[in-house]
Amino acid sequence: MLLATATVQRSAATREPTWLRWLLIGGALAFLGFFLVLPLLSVFAEALRKGWALYWQALVEPDALSALRLTLLVTAVALPLNLVFGVAAAWAIAKFDFKGKSLLITLIDLPFSVSPVVAGLVYVLLFGAQGWFGPWLMAHDIKIIFAIPGIVLATVFITFPFIARELIPLMEAQGTEEEQAAMVLGASGWQMFWRVTLPNIKWGLLYGVILCNARAMGEFGAVSVVSGHIRGLTNTTPLHVEILYNEYNFVAAFACASILALLALLTLAAKTWVEWQAERQRALDARMAMDE
């Protein structure tokens, strides 16, 4: 959040005494240190406890590699699905007025509030051996639960609202004037979308994609319910970390965890960069509007 870094200049009357300021800063930093920084550092410290050789060995072990491949595959399927949905939902909700819009928004938000375990469970109830479609799937030899499609479905559910949620307020704030102008000037629907709408929402879209990606790669609870934990087949990296940890193979567990932690740090960096770009663009737009 870049806004927060621009501290307002304040007069002495509306400032706290220096000792209190440092006390508050110290308190905040101590809290963040114990709850954020130390856990993050400990992941890397534990991973490297027995040296680089063992660390590397844990990473290139076949099960670890296949878990990482599965994680990337699941993300590669779930992300585009929710991307297309997010854009479609935001287009309908932000650019048009229709009845039941608030209800639709609430329903889109639903996966945020549902426990990951419940999210996994609903797919077991649908596609599991004793589920609604279970017998039919069995008869046609299609496996969804305890197989990759189930993991993809659970991940799609968990990351469902991320991109739509970013785009809806952004596109609502932008209004419809530019698109209307494009239509009046004779653009086709797709031309308008690619040349007007997409450039306007690109930072918000990227921001949503980054968050969606992070959650898709890291999802644990929902995936754990539908995966069946078959090593080398249906284990994603977070599940692999759990198995290694429960086998007291701490170095290997933390080695795989450190990859996920690195991805998290990368996510935060990318997110900060996108915020910075969006801020810059906004400042640029504001200056151009003033010049006119």
Binding site: L211, M217, G218, F220, E242, A261, A264, L265, T267, K271
Partner: peptide, 8 residues
């Protein structure tokens, strides 16, 4: 906490 997988 939003970016770090919960298992980690």
């Amino acid at each position: 906490p939003f970016a770090l997988p919960t298992a980690v």
